[in-house]
Design a protein around this nucleic acid. Structure first.
Lengths: 100, 100
DNA sequence: TTTTCATTTCACAAAAACATGATATTAATA
DNA sequence: TATTAATATCATGTTTTTGTGAAATGAAAA
């Protein structure tokens, strides 16, 4: 095991990649399968530039990858940890588990 | 299920509560059991004021709680989701699963 | 009841994150 | 090859986070 501070730094950097309402929305869209940038823009209502920057951040953190088909880029989730975390978040924030 | 944007906002706010190297370090300390603020300061090397502000943020997000014993406050983790996420992070960033 | 200990709150500066508009790139089509 | 479609990059202003020093609070001990 490496130095705890380094681990914490790496883990925090990864978490910051997800810790944004807009990026979570993007990830929710991608959870159902790969999507083009245009599709993501339509589904989320984000501005084009903003979308592009969010995707860049997700790429930087190795959370998503993409493939090109002609002039369209299709993004997809490519990270097990993020899927597990999204599962936790789903149960915690998206299910109405409050009424017994 | 409520509105997706609201869920994303709530989940992101929660994630931001954890997405900091220093707060992860604090949470790692608390993972082994409750600790006083002074103990946390010693274990992490953070400045006193900074520690207090991080703890405030963790309290705001309902990630930790505390009890008072005389003039000492003992903090502890009080959130299932955060424990699950820490487990994922541990396997991803703190284990040397890269050799072999 | 004054002092001390443990901790929080306040005020402010520095750094990081975010959104937006303008421009660039890349691939395809006319 | 000039144009258009899909997307990325750049520059910039704003907001949010973070750290630090100074002052405040609250509970015990002297």
């Amino acid at each position: 095991m490496k130095d705890m501070e380094e681990n914490a730094q790496a883990a925090a950097s990864f978490l910051k990649g997800i810790a944004s309402p807009h990026r979570l929305l993007i990830l929710c869209q991608l959870a159902t399968g790969e999507k083009s940038v245009t599709e993501l823009i339509q589904a989320t209502g984000l501005a084009q530039t903003s979308m592009s920057q969010h995707l860049t951040k997700l790429k930087d953190e190795k959370i998503v990858t993409f493939r090109r088909d002609h002039r369209t880029l299709f993004y997809r989730i490519d990270n097990d940890a993020v899927l597990k975390i999204m599962d936790v978040l789903y149960h915690e924030f998206c299910e109405e588990g409050d009424e017994k």
